[in-house]
Simulated scan of single mutants.
Amino acid sequence: MSEQFESWRIRPLQTHYRIVYLDGIHFGIRHGSGCDSSILLTILGVDLEGNKEMLALQACAEESREGWLSILQDMRSRGAIQIDLFATDGHEGLLGALSELFTATPRQRCLVHKQRNVLSAIPRRERELVQADLVGIWKPEKKEDALANLVAFKAKYAERYPQAVRSLCEDEEHLLTFYDFPVGMHRHIQSTNAIEGFFSNVRQRTDQIDAFTTETSCVRLVWAVMQDIRFHKVTVS
Rank of each mutant, 00 (worst) to 15 (best):
M185E: 12
V135M: 14
A211K: 04
L85A: 04
W68G: 14
V135C: 08
Q82C: 08
N117P: 09
P106L: 03
M75E: 03
G136K: 00
Q115V: 05
N149A: 00
A155C: 01
F212P: 09
G67F: 08
D171S: 14
K139D: 00
E172F: 03
E159H: 09
G184R: 07
K154W: 05
T206E: 06
G93K: 09
T177E: 09
V202K: 10
E173G: 04
L129T: 09
D84C: 06
I83T: 08
D133G: 02
R124Y: 09
L175H: 13
S77D: 14
L119H: 02
A104C: 04
L176R: 06
V112Q: 00
F199M: 05
Y161L: 11
H188M: 11
M185S: 07
R116M: 06
P140K: 12
Q163F: 04
N193M: 07
P123F: 01
N149E: 05
L134T: 03
Y161P: 15
Q73W: 00
I81Q: 08
R166A: 15
V130S: 08
E173R: 12
W138A: 09
L129Y: 02
C169S: 07
L129M: 04
E170I: 12
T88A: 07
D145S: 08
S99D: 14
E141M: 13
V202H: 02
K154C: 14
E144G: 05
F178G: 09
T177S: 09
K142E: 15
Q208Y: 09
F212W: 04
G136R: 00
T88F: 08
F198K: 02
E159I: 12
R65M: 14
Y157A: 07
N201L: 05
P140Y: 11
L72P: 03
K114E: 08
D84I: 01
E196Y: 02
D133W: 13
R78G: 11
D210P: 12
D207S: 15
D84W: 03
L168F: 04
V151Y: 10
E172S: 13
E92R: 09
F199R: 00
P182W: 01
A148S: 05
C110H: 13
Q163C: 02
D171T: 12
L168H: 08
Q82V: 09
L72S: 10
E100I: 11
S77K: 13
G90D: 14
N193H: 02
A194E: 12
D210M: 09
L94N: 07
F86K: 07
Q115R: 13
Q82G: 01
L176N: 11
A80C: 15
S99H: 13
D210I: 07
E173I: 06
A155P: 00
E126T: 06
